[in-house]
Design a protein around this nucleic acid. Structure first.
Length: 574
DNA sequence: GCCGTTTTCGGCCCGACTGTTTTCAGTCG
């Protein structure tokens, strides 16, 4: 059983307990456990089988027993028992914004509401206001939420790239406004998370009303949600919610820290503060004993007062970053400016939109020292296949262009398909002519973890394969990774000197941060590539670098921060 | 239910907002 399924079961159990009126800290414990299980890079089912799930923070003997029961019986006995008492469909009602377990339980006890449809009818018949504490406004909100849920399914997340585009435009506009002081993006966008729900911006201003107005009047704003001296809120034309919060300069650091999150990071930060006799909020740091409040102008001050190094936003994940910050051992993270070359891109030869010359010119303008052009291979579908003959023609073209170009080395490469049995779709004699070979899986995703891992390991062991492309095949918000075991893959890659890619396409981010961290720890050389299909998407490098930063990786762990000469020294073939 | 610079019991992050109240519980980020 995979981790997300176990995590979902505990989330459901947490809500059931909450509906049952259990101790809130017990509920919290189940929710925390669900999060830990979801984020765990190893199979929690296997850990529990070995009696080692208790090594995870937040999982004790009781939860381990429940995990084993879940795997054995398909359901946690405690959940089954609660579902005899309460309809399981109440859980789904708590998903509606504004309706927590307490309210849902009350509506069930007093009105017998146990499904979304019953809720809709009761709200439209204005029967909810008969319950003490519920009123007309709630009925209105419930109906609006139900309508939205019907229209767009559950709450819509979007790719970071989509939100960043909007966030950066707004940031530029707000910073240019005469009333603005400090302006910064906060939230998941600032942490470079894979997906996000909304955009948070925090600011100081000489005239807060005027700065709020600037957001409301921005050309991207479709709906003005609210406004005032404390900030403003809009919805953009592409339906992204944006919150601007404005505070006095002396509280700016505290506010920025607070709204950058993550939630898990802030919880850990506050727990640490409490042990020091301090209390952290978005207004400042309070000495519990004296009540003295220290408002913080900068984020650095927030962390300094807690005895910590400034934690880069990408690392604020609620992992071990605070311990590292306390020991002054936070890693020095790789930066976009340190990337010296891109080793995965496409041209019009396969499915790209720009020519070889155009891609080379763009790479050169970026200041790269090398570029590998890696069009798809012989068996690639969609009419974008490149027969061996065409590849050899391209090779000659690359050699000629490389000789004629100063300042950047152009490499002849290919992104070859790894067939289901692990073989490649060009003959070795053809591959041997190339400077750089990426092997990727593009077909037959459903062959099971074991066969998929063997397939990729075989490609890794091929002497002419330099690198594995987008290793897990996931597409964010679209397609789950295919089933595979990464441990043997990382082990084989380290042993064979085959590099592994962090694909920077914002829909891929593959490897993801957790797996990139594990790969680096296993001694694998990582390469950050864009997989660009046109000149503009060479800019996606920032997303791959963000994933590496979130994995805590520095330039020494990323092979393409090297010059080409240094890079060549890391390769298995010279 | 978990966990230990509070160490096997007694705590467990904080404040704003909303809608409903007339002093606050519930929800959310």
């Amino acid at each position: 059983m995979r981790n997300p399924k176990i995590a979902d079961a505990f989330d459901e159990l947490a809500t059931l307990y909450e509906l049952d009126g259990a101790n809130r800290y017990r509920v919290l414990a189940y929710r925390e456990a669900a999060r830990v299980i979801r984020d765990c890079p190893q199979s929690v089912a296997e850990l529990a089988g070995e009696g080692r799930a208790t090594e995870l923070a937040g999982i004790g003997e009781t939860l381990q027993t429940k995990i084993l029961a879940l795997i054995e019986a398909g359901e946690i006995p405690a959940s089954a028992k609660l579902k005899e008492k309460l309809p399981a469909s109440l859980v789904e009602i708590t998903q509606i914004p504004g309706l927590g377990a307490k309210t849902v339980r009350k509506m069930y006890d007093e009105l017998g509401i146990s499904s979304l449809e019953e809720l809709r009818i009761a709200a439209s018949e204005q029967r909810l206001r008969g319950v003490k504490g519920l009123g007309a406004k709630l009925e209105e909100n419930v109906l609006a939420s139900l309508e939205r849920i019907e229209a767009e399914g559950h709450e819509r997340r979007r790719l970071l790239s989509e939100a960043r585009e909007v966030a950066e435009q707004l940031l530029t506009a707000l910073r240019a406004h005469p009333a603005s002081g400090e302006v910064e993006i906060a939230g998941s966008v600032r942490r470079w998370a894979e997906t996000c729900k909304d955009i948070d911006i925090v600011a100081t201003a000489t005239d807060p009303e005027a700065l709020s107005a600037a957001l409301l009047e921005h050309e991207l704003a479709e709906e003005q949600r609210s406004s005032g001296g404390g900030g403003a809120s809009i919805r953009t034309f592409n339906d992204i919610k944006v919150d601007l919060r404005i505070v006095p300069p002396e509280e700016y650091g505290s506010l920025l820290q607070h709204f950058t999150g993550s939630k898990e990071h802030n919880v850990a930060l506050r727990e640490r503060a409490q042990r020091m006799g301090l209390s952290v909020s978005e207004h400042g740091i309070t000495e519990t004993e004296t009540g003295v409040v220290h408002a913080c102008r900068s984020e650095a001050e927030v962390y300094r007062r807690l005895g910590l190094m400034l934690v880069p936003p990408e690392l604020r994940q609620g992992g071990n970053e605070l311990e590292l910050a306390a020991e002054r051992e936070l890693p020095r993270l790789v930066e976009v400016g340190e990337i010296r070359g891109d080793l995965h891109c496409h041209t019009t030869l396969s499915d790209g939109q720009n020519s070889l010359e155009e891609m080379l010119g763009a790479a050169r303008r970026r200041g790269y020292l090398y570029l590998a052009v890696t069009d798809h291979s012989a068996s690639h579908g969609f009419g974008n296949d490149v027969p061996a003959g065409a590849l050899l023609d391209r090779l000659a073209e690359v050699r000629e262009l490389d000789t004629a170009t100063r300042g950047i080395k152009l490499l002849a490469g290919s992104e070859v398909n790894v067939m289901p049995n692990g073989s490649l779709d060009y003959e070795d004699e053809v591959l041997a002519e190339l400077d750089w070979v990426i092997a990727s899986v593009h077909t037959s995703f459903q062959i099971g973890a074991e066969r998929m891992s063997e397939r990729i390991v075989r490609a890794i062991e091929h002497p002419l394969v330099d690198c594995i492309g987008h290793p897990t095949g996931r597409l964010l918000l679209k397609r789950a990774p295919y089933e595979l075991a990464l441990e043997p893959i990382f082990e084989a890659a380290a042993a064979n000197g085959t590099m592994i890619e962090i694909n920077s396409n914002p829909r891929r981010r593959d490897l993801n941060e957790g797996n990139a961290r594990l790969a680096a720890a296993a001694g694998v050389q990582l390469v950050i590539n864009t997989d660009a299909h046109k000149v503009a998407t060479l800019d996606n490098m920032q997303y791959g670098v963000a994933t590496a930063r979130r994995a805590g990786l520095g330039p020494q762990q990323i092979a393409n921060t090297r010059t080409w000469r240094q890079f060549a020294g890391l390769r298995k073939r010279i």
